[in-house]
Structures are given as C-alpha cells and as structure tokens.
Amino acid sequence: METETFQPKILAFCCHYCAYSSADLAGSMRIQYPPNVRIIRTPCTGRLETEYFMKALENGADGVLVAGCLEGGCHFVEGNLCAKRRVNYTRDILVEIGLEPDRIRMVNISAAMARPLADTITDMVQTVRKLGPNPIKRNGAPQPENHA
C-alpha cells in the first residue's frame, strides 16, 4: 500500500543539448510525465562528478537520473561516455554501502526524443517506487560539516 502512495523525489541531471531540450519538447507536445522529477540542466553530462550523485542521494533524493546525448552524439565528443562511467562507479559504491544501485540510472536521449524521455521518467519513477523511500532519510538526511 505504502509503495503505491509513495511519491519518490528523483533528481534528473539533463544535458542542455539533448535531454533538457527533449523535456522542453515534451512540454510543447503536451506529453505528460510524472511530476516526481526535479530537472537540473547541465552543460553536458560529462560535467557531472560522482560526488554530485552521492550528495544527491545522501541529502534525500530517492533516485537520480542522468540523461545525456545518444552515444556518439555528444556535443563535447565523449562527455556522455564519461558520465556513464561515473554513474557505474557510483553504482559500485552504492552496492558497497548496501544501498540499491538502481536508484541511479544513466539514459541516452536525443533532443527529438520527447516521448522516450517521458517513458524513461515514468519507468524510473516506477523502479524507485518499488525500491521504496531512500533509507538514508529515515532519521533525517545528515548535514555535512565542511572545513575550509
């Protein structure tokens, strides 16, 4: 019952040149997708570091979606391939600490793929909903203290 009513918060890092534009196109085409995603536009998914994914999950995101260009179609040649490797590395760390690796996923979407983007988001929401709330949130997400 809880699984059905649980509304996951999913952080979606979308590349400016593809997935972000396809989200825009989905809006223009009136294609619906679940409101569970919070989209962050990035200049390229290659800009994303492992620490961003870790911090997102640590601070309470139930899932992280990284949407880059189709392989071979990156505006910066291989930024999306770098992102793919970092996502895989993050998944390895999640396995190490006992958190479900499926909470983070890398997808490849072109600017014209509005419908596949909506389907991907829907699928991600369903996957995370099945996994349940991020267990890190149970006692409140911790606030890291940083020294200069």
Binding site: E49, T50, M54, K55, E58, I93, I97, L99, P144, N146
Partner: peptide, 27 residues
C-alpha cells in the same frame, strides 16, 4: 578534495544504514 567528498558521503550513508552515530566532516 573530490575523493574526500565521495568517501565522506559514502561513509555517512553507510554509517546511517548501519545505525552508527558517526559524524563525518571533510577537509
């Protein structure tokens, strides 16, 4: 610095999942 951030995050999460009262800061 980047690895500190990743490892500190991972330790905080792992501690939380195990119910350990561990505070982790970074420098």
């Amino acid at each position: 610095q980047r690895e500190v951030s990743i490892i500190a995050s991972a330790l905080r999460m792992a501690a939380k999942l195990k119910g350990l009262p561990l505070e982790v800061s970074e420098a």
